[in-house]
């Protein structure tokens, strides 16, 4: 079963239109939604959660329409939004007790162990926590009610590399169950990119692409050389080309590269940046 299915989703604000958007997240998979600031990532997540009213299209979460019975759907969805919104004056332990009254499947033991693993400070009220610690608390809450789908909106951007690494591990563990899936949005994926199964690029409210990540990285490569050498590559296969004083480099489809020319790997981030540049 697909964990998430978005069909023809549309929303218009003055000066910005999202969609029509089609996106599928199969069970057991992790999808990285990448876009610049203002590309529509948060809007997409809010539309998924029905926090914004959509104009048209459908959103199916774990087989159910998000318009019906959203309350029971939310039991099974863990969410961390860009700004974690928890009561200001509560400590992590007090927050846990509130959540216990909200989620039927709240797991206090799991919550305590996530707090420990992520190193959330004890005895500090939410309002006194740093952005990073608020994020950690948000992640712990999202994971502690046994969700089947996780929606993370920029949820790791305020975290240090060591904690990010821990989060990667948690996400990998979470998706050991083929019934579990993750949608994570970010303007930068870097270390999280590794565990993503699919990558989607969002630009000005439209999807530039949605593809299996490793296939994407296999298709494209970086080539360096003299400007003349690079000119031999079919221009249709060139995503981006830049020339400097000492040579030229290009991101190209690997299959179009003549034998003998060395190709180096390209990162998701580089691909994204140059695809967006190409759109402008």
């Amino acid at each position: 079963m697909n964990a998430l299915e978005i069909r023809g989703l549309k929303k218009t604000f003055s000066g910005f239109q999202l969609g029509p958007l089609d996106l599928t997240l199969p069970g057991g998979c992790i999808l990285g939604l990448i876009g610049e600031n203002g590309a529509g990532k948060s809007t997409t997540i809010k539309l998924i959660l029905n926090m914004l009213r959509r104009e048209s299209g459908t959103v199916t979460i774990l087989g159910r329409d998000n318009g019906q019975d959203l309350r029971s759907i939310k039991e099974e969805v863990g969410v961390v939004l860009d700004e974690v919104g928890l009561p200001d004056c509560l400590t992590s332990a007090q927050t846990g007790r509130v959540m216990e009254g909200i989620f039927r499947q709240w797991d206090a033991a799991a919550y305590a162990s996530y707090l420990r693993e992520l190193g959330v400070p004890e005895g500090k009220a939410f309002k006194e926590m740093s952005r990073g610690n608020r994020m950690k608390l948000g992640i712990a809450v999202a994971l502690s009610h046994h969700p089947r789908l996780l929606l993370l909106d920029e949820a790791t951007s305020g975290l240090d590399p060591v904690v990010r690494d821990r989060v990667v591990e948690m996400l990998a563990d979470f998706t050991r169950d083929e019934d579990h899936a993750v949608l994570l949005s970010s303007h930068i994926v870097s270390d999280l990119e590794r565990i993503c199964d699919y990558i989607a690029f969002l630009h000005k409210g439209k999807l530039l692409l949605c593809q299996e990540k490793d296939r994407l990285l296999e298709e494209y490569g970086f080539v360096h050389g003299a400007a003349g050498e690079l000119a031999a590559i079919d221009s249709a296969a060139v995503l981006h080309r830049s020339e400097g004083r000492y040579g030229a480099e290009a991101i190209v489809l690997r299959r179009a590269v003549p034998a003998g020319m060395a190709i180096s790997p390209v990162t998701v981030e580089e691909l994204f940046v140059h695809m967006v540049k190409g759109e402008r």
Binding site: V168, E169, A172, E178, R194, I195, D197, E212, K213, D214
Partner: peptide
């Protein structure tokens, strides 16, 4: 397949392939 992918922290689809 799933276990290996998660242990190596890589995509499940890739391992399957």
């Amino acid at each position: 397949i799933r276990g290996l992918a998660k242990d190596l922290r890589i995509s499940f689809i890739t391992t399957k392939r």
